[in-house]
Computed example of a mutant assay.
Amino acid sequence: MKNKLFAEFFGTFWLVFGGCGSAVLAAAFFAQNGETPINMGIAHLGVSFAFGLTVLTMAYAIGHISGCHLNPAVSIGLAVGGRHPWSEVGPYIGSQVVGGLAGAGVLAVIAGGQEGFSFDGGFASNGYGEHSPGGFSMVSCLVAEVVLTFFFLMIILGATDKRAPAGFAPIAIGLGLTLIHLIGIPVTNLSVNPARSTGPAVFVGGWAISQLWLFWLAPIVGAALAGIVYPLISKEES
């Protein structure tokens, strides 16, 4: 169990540091060329792939140790679907949240070394209403997070089914998370992961903390629904 929790800590650290780091450090990066800055930012497409790659790489690195959940919603969804013991859900969530906080903390140290950096820019926090990148309402953001987490868990449950092609689950899951970010970044900055949301929010404070409830509630609801639905549709007919 100790090894599983360490794996979840380091995996979630990597997800937050890599995914949120790409958004904070690289999404709108401008390199100086004399007096004319050159736009070398990776934008939404790059950030989407960064999040997907963090999960893909960690799935191969620690999947055989802890299952590579990296996400409280994933742990809960897998438990609802009968794929993970409920007795381990609490410790897993604790390790994931601490890992997310540590990843955001290291990112804050690095980002703070640039002149003019401020957490007022959002620090890749998730938000709705005026804090949604596209100005989407709370209801829109709630629905988006539930639906996108639902399909993320459906991908995870299907890709890790014993009948699925062996060895390819990390690719499907990583690309699935990439697609989900391509859809959801304009809406909420895309969470589908309470630990990912909590890390940056703690450093931003204020509005990010007050809106954090949605990014715990919606992913857990979406994941739990997938944990119910997938076993129903995956049963082999007699």
Rank of each mutant, 00 (worst) to 15 (best):
A172I: 11
L212S: 04
L182F: 15
W213N: 00
P219L: 09
A223H: 12
L182V: 05
V204G: 09
A201P: 00
L217E: 02
L157Y: 05
N189D: 13
M154I: 11
A144H: 14
I228Y: 13
V204F: 06
T198Q: 01
S210C: 00
L190Y: 13
W213E: 00
A223L: 05
V229L: 11
E145S: 04
S197T: 09
L212V: 08
S191M: 08
S210K: 12
I155M: 10
A223V: 09
I183A: 11
W213V: 01
H181Y: 12
I209G: 00
G184H: 14
R196C: 01
L157H: 10
G205A: 06
A226L: 06
H181K: 12
I185K: 14
I155Y: 09
A195L: 06
I228M: 10
H181D: 02
T149P: 01
A218M: 09
A172F: 13
Q211K: 09
L225H: 07
L177F: 07
W207V: 03
L157R: 08
A166L: 12
L148R: 04
L177I: 13
V202W: 02
T178I: 12
G206N: 15
L182T: 06
V146N: 02
A218Y: 14
R163S: 09
I156L: 06
V146K: 03
P200A: 12
V187H: 09
L225M: 12
L148F: 11
R163W: 05
V202G: 01
I220S: 06
T188H: 07
I209H: 05
L157S: 05
L182Q: 06
P200R: 02
G167H: 07
G205W: 02
L153G: 01
L175G: 05
W207I: 01
G206C: 05
G176P: 09
L179F: 15
A164S: 09
L153M: 08
G174D: 10
S210I: 03
V146R: 06
T160K: 11
K162C: 01
V192F: 06
Q211N: 11
I173P: 02
L179H: 14
Q211Y: 10
A166N: 10
V143F: 15
D161G: 04
V221I: 15
R196S: 03
L217I: 15
A166Q: 13
G227F: 12
V229Y: 07
P165R: 05
P219F: 10
T198G: 02
P186G: 10
F215K: 04
A166D: 15
N193V: 07
V143R: 01
V146W: 15
T149M: 04
F152S: 00
I185R: 15
S191P: 03
I171W: 15
W213F: 09
G205L: 04
A166P: 09
